[in-house]
Design a binder for these strands. Sequence first.
DNA 1: TCAATAATAGTAATTGTTACTGTTTTATAA
DNA 2: TTATAAAACAGTAACAATTACTATTATTGA
Lengths: 133, 133
Amino acid sequence: MLKHSRQRESIKKFLMQRCDHPTAETVYWGIKEEFPNISLGTVYRNLSLLAEIGEILKISTGKGPDRFDANIQPHYHFFCNECGSVLDLNMDSIEHINVIADHDFQGKVEGSITHFFGKCPGCLEKEISQKSC
Amino acid sequence: MLKHSRQRESIKKFLMQRCDHPTAETVYWGIKEEFPNISLGTVYRNLSLLAEIGEILKISTGKGPDRFDANIQPHYHFFCNECGSVLDLNMDSIEHINVIADHDFQGKVEGSITHFFGKCPGCLEKEISQKSC
DNA sequence: TCAATAATAGTAATTGTTACTGTTTTATAA
DNA sequence: TTATAAAACAGTAACAATTACTATTATTGA
């Protein structure tokens, strides 16, 4: 049975007011203002729990720590190769790729995760302004 | 300057004769027969190096250790939710999703990685035979 | 065959995360 | 309200995967 906790509430609230998909560590330091004694373990536990019950998303990056997102509306994520930032990428669903993948597959394809990468708007801008000099 | 090494050659050869996308640890134990004194660090270093120069693929799973694949032909990967196995999934390229993603994006989408998941052929088979009892 | 240097084995350190433990909060109910 | 059971906590230790360090060995090109 899930009991309310002020720490968990604060973690969720912190995450909701950010759009940069912070890591557990970042959440930890952000929460520390309100809960100076909060433990990193508590942050990890609650982020995992919130992800498990579907209130937030856990984004595995494959390189470096996991990131978290309070926006559970269907959307995609973009990873900048230059600066490492993680951005939301809103686009129409590409779930049809699951059907394509399932077509000749002996098992059952139930879902997929797609991560996009390249240059983020900021890094692209920087590149262009450098070239023009 | 890259020098030849018998250990690296053996690692590559081991990987080429497997289709289950082994982890560094698995490669380590496989190589140990030929090189009883090989170090796990050597395996990691060479797998990373081979991936860097494009001779093999490193597959980040998001959960558990990375896996490696000597098949560098374009193909996709399927992760079984039941048994955790990683299988090749051959299908037509879905690179068009990068164009879709790029369309309304301020930066530049240069690529994407898609992982499929669900039930592998073996686990699907097991499930069906259990239901019929 | 000899030097330069890349790669090695063995080990220590690092990173990101989870598990453990005794204490504190929270929810329920007397 | 108290009492109590369970959930969550802070603090810390342990863990898994990977990388870094160091003295020695292997490879290469002159």
